[in-house]
Nucleic acid binder design. Structure first.
Length: 153
DNA sequence: GCCAACGTTGGC
DNA sequence: GCCAACGTTGGC
């Protein structure tokens, strides 16, 4: 059982949409480190849902319900690239997972609070601000759940 | 809107 | 294989 954090710009895909859609394929990750994190996710793992850019806060929790499979939104890009004759055999294998809305923070936990908290200042979210799929330690998870007054559904 | 940090690309 | 140029992300 592992904990994670996934980011989304609310203008592109928000927590509200996640809640309405219930289950959502988490596509569009085009960074190798983030891709590796996606691949390491297992069914039943939990992830914080973070709103980047405009909100900058953790708003909810999702559960991984399907492990890594080829990202359908990457297939087209790959085809175009191969068609152009540049790429040597589909080297770019991007993946996605399916996530299900699990519950909402009663109190969103902001980046400012996270950065100001010595117990959380070492988070990948802080140290690698551009990493869109990041691991979260057990301690960090518990701490943020407390700050967000998280109640398991 | 600006800028720093980071990742990718292409010339050499 | 190095490095400059460029593009993107995301905090402020």
């Amino acid at each position: 059982m592992q904990y994670w954090l996934i980011k989304s710009e609310p203008e592109a895909f928000s927590w509200q949409q996640q809640v309405e859609n219930v289950t959502e394929p988490w596509t569009g990750v085009r960074n190798y480190q983030a891709r590796n994190n996606l691949s390491a996710m297992r069914c039943g793992d939990l992830a914080f849902f973070y709103h980047s850019v405009s909100d900058r806060e953790i708003v909810g929790v999702v559960e991984i319900v399907r492990e890594a499979y080829p990202d359908p939104t990457a297939a087209e890009e790959g085809a175009v690239k191969e068609g152009s004759g540049k790429e040597g055999g589909g080297k770019r294998r991007w993946v996605c997972v399916d996530v299900r809305a699990h519950g909402e923070m009663r109190k969103p936990v902001s980046l400012a609070v996270i950065k100001a908290d010595p117990a959380l200042a070492g988070m990948a979210l802080v140290k690698q601000s551009r990493l869109s799929v990041a691991p979260v330690t057990h301690e960090e998870w518990q701490h943020i759940c407390a700050l967000g007054q998280w109640r398991a559904p």
